[in-house]
Nucleic acid binder design. Structure first.
Length: 453
RNA sequence: GUGGUCUUAGCUCAGUUGGCAGAGCAUCGGAUUGUGGUUCCGAGUGUCGUGGGUUCGAGCCCCACAUUCCACCCCA
């Protein structure tokens, strides 16, 4: 018998941790609602045909696959067995997988429920996703995403609203952040004027690492991918653009003047920044040409949010995808969305110690009692308090008051109502404030006003 | 997927050249039969991650696997 354990990269959450996590989820959810987004949920598992090929080659490898139920072995002929590889076998014995993100299942949802949806469709979704990645700090195999997307419009007002949501969520959480903004069309334009339009993915993957490995490192990686030295040299000044957002856009407009796509990207970015200004956005927005983001389906604006006071990967990211539903047979639906990484936000809040003192999940009053009759006397009073919205517990066991007090102390319950035979006969409880140590006999119907003071 | 690292009581960790398994905290009981957070006294707790190997003898040495954390790859 080995001791119990949980799979690699997964976690249990204690009541304390859940209280903190719910604070994050509630904050994010209330801001989403403020902008008119409505919640949906989708299944933990999707058909593999829905998931495969949507996240690139790497993504496919990181999918958790679910073994078919029943006697899957008997469906394999001996012929199959002889030349099976573990890769080809998986398609024969597995047809479902755990979702890898919330965006692709959402695209599937939109296509499947298009008759029930009012476009533009504003949805949010807070659910776990799974990746068969190797875990490390801030990276788990099961983690939560909080996605918010608008589909069915290509209005850049949506990008602006998402930026406003980012600003408001992090203002409420008290985390100082910087939003990095870029546009896939600008990246495509750069690849185009370099004459390497078809190498867009290689180029973006490499320059995404700019702040990590420096321009020398990027150059080496691009040369290794087979780009010419001349091309790499021409990319150099683009990566090293200086100045504020307006100045960078001006220089880019000159560089990309021969690329229609690139110029479109610049126009879009200008418009988003202009709308943000009109909307009164104060958030620190930085045009960052090196921001690429891995997922291949982005086609317009892309964003990433980083905490200023903590060393951590991005805590929020997203972008516009023009044709995500196209792969499911519903072309021409443009969408834009972002995803808040709840687990990383949790780590950031912990490191900065930014949690609010009191939690609505905390028990406010514990009834401690001396025996069976006293315990029953507590039940009616406890119910009356609960109906007034006060979180109330009655200690379940008949045992020493010391033990019951200790329980309240450990659980940080601020008030204890002690009930003995004296209290029963006078219709009172001995109400003790655990913080100050003061106690007084109070009529049972005035407990509520005293502890809500 | 590649390379490295960690694992000993519920928790955090000591453990010497290979020779009886340790501490602090927590828990439980008592000092105190109607009062917690401070104090004092007492008690219990181990498949030393799992499986194999070397040895008279392994927590310690060797191999495999799992796990933790880290750097790549990639990403929230």
């Amino acid at each position: 018998m080995t001791r119990p354990s949980i799979p690699k990269g997964t976690r249990d959450f204690t009541p304390e941790e859940m209280s903190r996590r719910n604070y994050i989820f509630d904050t994010i959810r209330s801001v989403f609602r403020l902008y008119g987004f409505q919640q949906i949920e989708t299944p933990a598992m999707e058909n593999l045909s829905t998931l495969l090929g949507k996240y690139g080659e790497e993504g496919d490898k990181l999918l958790f696959k679910i073994l078919n139920s029943g006697d899957w072995l008997s469906s394999l002929s001996s012929d199959d067995m002889s030349y099976l590889t573990s890769n080809s076998a998986s398609t024969l014995i597995s047809e479902k997988g755990l979702r890898y993100d919330l965006t692709v299942p959402f695209a599937r949802f939109v296509v499947q429920n298009r008759d029930k949806i009012q476009f533009p469709f504003r949805r949010y979704q807070i659910q776990p996703v799974w990746r068969a990645d190797r875990p490390q700090k801030g990276r788990y195999r099961e983690f939560y995403q909080c996605d918010v997307d608008v589909v069915g419009t290509d209005s850049l007002l949506c990008e602006t609203e998402l930026i406003q949501i980012v600003e408001e969520v992090y203002r409420r959480l008290g985390i100082r952040v910087c939003l990095h903004l870029n546009n896939r069309k600008i990246l495509a334009g750069i690849a185009e004027i370099l004459g390497e339009a078809e190498r867009l993915t290689d180029i973006t993957v490499a320059i995404d690492k700019l702040d990590k490995i420096g321009s020398e490192g990027v150059n080496q990686e691009l040369l290794a991918k087979g780009l010419s030295e001349d091309t790499v040299n021409r990319l150099q000044p683009i990566l090293n653009l200086q100045g504020d957002n307006g100045e960078k856009l001006g220089q880019l407009a000159y560089i990309l003047k021969d690329s229609e796509t690139g110029m479109k990207g610049i126009e879009e970015t200008k418009e988003v920044l202009r709308l943000c200004k009109s909307a009164g956005v104060k958030l620190d927005i930085m045009l960052d040409i090196s921001l690429a983001r891995g997922l291949n389906y982005y086609t317009g604006a892309i964003f990433e949010v980083k905490a200023l006071d903590v060393e951590m990967g991005s805590i929020t990211g997203g972008g516009r995808y023009d044709n995500l539903t196209g792969i499911f047979g519903m072309p021409g639906v443009s969408g834009v969305g972002i995803s808040f990484g709840a687990d990383r936000i949790y780590d950031v809040l912990n490191q900065l110690n930014l949690y609010p003192e009191h939690s609505s999940e905390q028990t406010q009053l514990l009834f401690a009692h001396f025996g069976e009759a006293e315990r029953e006397y507590c039940l009616t009073i406890a119910n009356a308090l609960r109906s007034k919205g006060i979180n109330t517990e009655v200690y379940p066991d008949i045992c020493k008051i010391k033990k019951q007090m200790n329980y309240a102390d450990q659980k940080h319950i601020p008030f204890v109502a002690i009930v003995g035979s004296d209290e029963i006969s006078s219709g009172t409880v001995m109400l003790k404030n655990m913080l100050t140590g003061e106690q007084q006999a109070v009529q049972s119907d005035s407990i509520a006003e005293i502890i809500t003071l």
